[in-house]
Design a protein around this nucleic acid. Structure first.
Lengths: 344, 344
DNA sequence: CTGTTAGCGCATTCAA
DNA sequence: TTGAATGCGCTAACAG
């Protein structure tokens, strides 16, 4: 144990000014616009800053410039690569634009509304994922005229929204499975759980209609690995019959597939399995998992960028921006195994 | 396009006070300590807040209370489950303590020192991962007497550090591989890349010494999947000879294992492969990957908590806190396949 | 229980 | 090119 760090005063713009023998205005200038200060005084100030270990108090600046220069991001959680990638994109773009990012993970909050209100207090604008917008706390942010963008949520007139394409790629994927001769397809996942999933099931239905087939009701289970395992067990027990499973995400697809294989079933021969997200595991399992790749990072970047523009007075775009997705065909759908398709 | 959001004034504590017919002090009180305000006026104020959609300006509060009420976290990046879990733990604990978290991802920053300085401006304390501490920009934060904790970095006298146990679990893991009769072990990964890795190689060496065997030099490659694949190719070409690979992390282990298998080698029969981190994939590949599980979330939580305490004047703990890790034995090391070891 | 008042540290006019 | 003065919105004494 060494001695406690003093939470003492710390250098301020005043102490720096004193030390350098200039006014605080000059100190402020060498920080904001060094070029308008004469080289000699500038150097004196820089030396003072160095000598005193001056770290400006951001809050004071924020108050003066009337901007937090920070973006808030509300995500459900952070397990799996999806949200992490989103966050990476968001943070990267925000940083480029000189904005800090304050993160709020909703799932772990006992009092989410409170957390959101608190967050709103410290940012110029907010990006929220999925259904979270419905939170009255988020509505309040809107009413307070702070820009809000929704990522992968429902479109609303008053909020800008950004999402990946889901419906048509789901339809494509479903049709692809039909192409392999499968006829009893099951959609695994709860469309009510999130707007994305709803769209994906929508595409599943669409593809059936196009072939004049009746789509089965979705198997409404949650998205954790053990939910998938449990479903697989029920399938093994004969509760569900299908020759192809269109799963709402890769975690589900993988846990189901692995369980079926461990029980002696062959994928894709006995049953095809496809998923969503193209997680790392999808490349490493055998057979490789056929899935849909979304431009998740781009989603984040775009959200950040739009926040920035909205804060600066851009008009809110009422039509949702939809980013294209891409089918990643591997072997679990029935396609022949590619030579070495391990890398992205 | 609807009309632009006005970045107009927005309600302040003054407008709320006016609207409710009270002083700003009273408004402040109903927000900070509602119980000291009479029920009737309290309600009037709350109504005013509601009516005006009042969202306090956090910066003003920060300035007044002389605390940002925010913690900074500097992470290299966010791919893979490791950093994400760390962040989840950090954010969760911070939120419990009423602190916001401002995230900075180092790898994407063209001007990291600048980003760190900017971050320091807006937080009360900083947690940095690994080597990042060496940044002079971080040193400046230290000198400015803002608490800093290092996660999984080197121990230093002036900074508090938190890490997972590496050396002895590495030694255990290595000894375990010996137990399976392996004799030509290779450590794959660059000990100079990060303090963790150095410790792991240290354990590898230790286990050899205990058996009076000479440890091979580490195979110094980077941690990306393709680095692993490339190494596997060199091994297939006979450049490296080994009957067991102790890999610095799971990504490496998995990419190597998969490549070897695709080329017809058997794991673990021809060569055992073990890794670090227990990523999701480790459970799903066949054979299941033997690895080391770290309490990553706990690392984050602890960091956040210590920052909080340090900001409040706790003395910095000079001896690093080391959290225990756990071997996860699956099949890739040579252990018999467990029945169903898919779940965590 | 409520109002008055004095900062918190910085950016930014406006003069000089 | 520099300095003096003002205000950003809020908290926390201190009085009443």
């Amino acid at each position: 144990m060494t001695t406690a760090r003093q939470q003492g005063p710390g250098a301020t713009i005043y102490s720096v000014a004193d030390y350098a023998g200039v006014s605080i205005a000059t100190v402020s200038r060498v920080i904001q616009r060094p070029e308008v200060v004469s080289p000699s005084t500038r150097q004196r100030v820089l030396d003072a800053i160095e000598a005193l270990n001056y770290v400006p108090v951001g809050a004071a600046r924020s108050l003066a410039v009337r901007h937090h220069e920070a973006h808030g991001l509300v995500l459900p959680e952070l397990s799996g690569p999806y949200y992490a990638e989103l966050l990476m994109g968001f943070e990267a773009r925000a940083a480029e634009l000189g904005q800090s990012v304050i993160l709020l993970l909703a799932d772990t909050k006992s009092d989410l509304p409170r957390a959101v209100r608190q967050l709103a207090t410290r940012v110029d604008a907010l990006a929220v994922f999925g259904r979270t917008v419905d939170e009255p706390s988020v509505q309040r942010v809107l009413h307070a005229r702070k820009p809000v963008v929704v990522i992968a949520g429902e479109c609303r007139a008053d909020v800008e929204s950004i999402a990946a394409e889901n419906t048509s790629s789901a339809a494509q994927l479903t049709e692809h499975v039909f192409t392999h001769g499968r006829r009893r397809l099951l959609f695994v996942g709860d469309p009510d759980a999130a707007p994305d999933i709803a769209s994906r099931y929508g595409g599943f239905v669409q593809a059936h209609r196009a072939r004049r087939r009746k789509p089965a009701d979705p198997v409404r289970i949650a998205f954790r690995e053990n939910d998938g395992t449990a479903f697989a067990d029920r399938m093994l027990a004969g509760e569900h019959v299908a020759d192809a499973l269109v799963c709402a995400n890769d975690e589900l697809a993988l846990s189901i597939m692995t369980r079926l294989q461990d029980a002696g079933r062959s994928v894709p021969d006995d049953v095809a399995v496809v998923g969503w997200d193209d997680v790392m595991t999808a490349r490493y399992v055998r057979p490789g998992l056929t899935t849909v790749r979304q431009p998740v990072g781009e989603l984040g970047r775009l959200a950040s960028e739009r926040l920035y523009e909205l804060v600066r007075g851009a008009t809110v775009n009422a039509t949702p921006q939809v980013l294209p997705t891409r089918l990643v065909l591997r072997h679990s759908c029935g396609c022949p195994p590619a030579g070495i398709s391990t890398l992205p």
